[in-house]
């Protein structure tokens, strides 16, 4: 596939929870091998939008979507598409570290096993932990419970777990919001490194973080009816220096949050 072609193309996407419209007519493209930050005030639907990309919203019985998302040119929500297969190609890291109550080794091995990995599992685990910059800290204690790790280490373990199944995209939902500043910087550095080989979409509350790590930024807001809509999407440098919309400018300069 052409590297210049967008990996996701979202067109007139709306998402409803029962009758409540949480997202309204979103049109955007996600660039391949770039970090796209989704920013906006609480309740603007940025996490909801993120969860549309790997069909996590399918797990909420009342949620349904209108419009279309193309992933690698084909309809992500086509009835023939297997959501579990999609999720092994589009990984996700959550707001709070959520390692399984298993060993460090088994956490990373989980995705490999359920997806029928046929290579050397030990090798894949080492590779993933190295990519997540965690290997040196845990290589001597792979059999220890993941719950004994610090919060920042747990989050890097969750990233390693997501990387192990070799996804094309990694979705991150405020991955550093539960971490201290030093652990946050480690995660940000890791995200930058990963963007060389993965497409990353990251939701963040923290505008400095968006400015520091992302290549592109999309700004969402909730309208009068509380549905989220896309205000502006462009190169991060442009959004933060010369935003087209006054609302974007007001938000990034901290006039409301």
């Amino acid at each position: 596939m052409n590297d210049d072609a967008p990996i996701f193309e979202v067109s007139s996407l709306s998402l409803y929870y029962d009758d409540f419209r949480a997202l309204k007519d979103i049109d955007m493209e996600i660039r391949r091998y770039a970090i796209t930050a989704l920013i906006g005030p609480s309740g603007c639907g940025k996490s909801t939008l993120l969860r549309c990309f790997n069909r996590m919203n399918d797990l909420i019985p009342t949620a349904r979507i209108e419009g279309r998302i193309l992933f690698e040119g084909s309809d992500l929500y086509h009835p023939d598409v297997d959501a579990t297969e999609i999720r092994s190609r589009i990984g996700m890291v959550f707001q709070r570290p959520n390692p399984f109550p298993k060993s460090i080794y088994d956490n990373v091995a989980f995705g490999l096993k359920i997806n029928g990995y046929r290579g050397d599992i030990d090798e894949a685990i080492e590779r993933s932990l190295r990519q997540a910059a965690l290997w040196d800290e845990v290589k001597d204690r792979l059999k220890d419970s993941a719950l004994e790790l610090s919060g920042g280490q747990q989050q890097r373990l969750c990233i390693a777990r997501a990387l192990a199944v070799e996804p094309e995209v990694i979705l991150m939902d405020e991955p550093a919001s539960a971490l201290d500043p030093i652990a946050t910087l480690a995660i940000e550095e890791l995200v930058r490194e990963l963007s060389e080989s993965y497409t990353i979409v990251i939701v963040t509350h923290n505008m400095q973080q968006a400015a520091r790590v992302s290549h592109e930024t999309a700004f969402l807001m909730a309208g009068e009816d509380r549905s989220g809509y896309l205000v502006e999407h462009g190169a991060t440098s442009q959004i933060f220096t010369t935003p087209k919309s006054e609302r974007t400018e007001a938000y990034i300069t901290g006039r409301f949050s």
Partner: peptide
């Protein structure tokens, strides 16, 4: 719930999530 979500996000089916994550936990 976050553990179930972690499993689903890795491509686990409902059965795999129940048997390999929820039951052991």
């Amino acid at each position: 719930r976050s553990l179930r979500q972690a499993a689903y996000a890795l491509g686990a089916t409902k059965l795999e999530t129940s048997v390999k994550v929820v039951v052991p936990a």
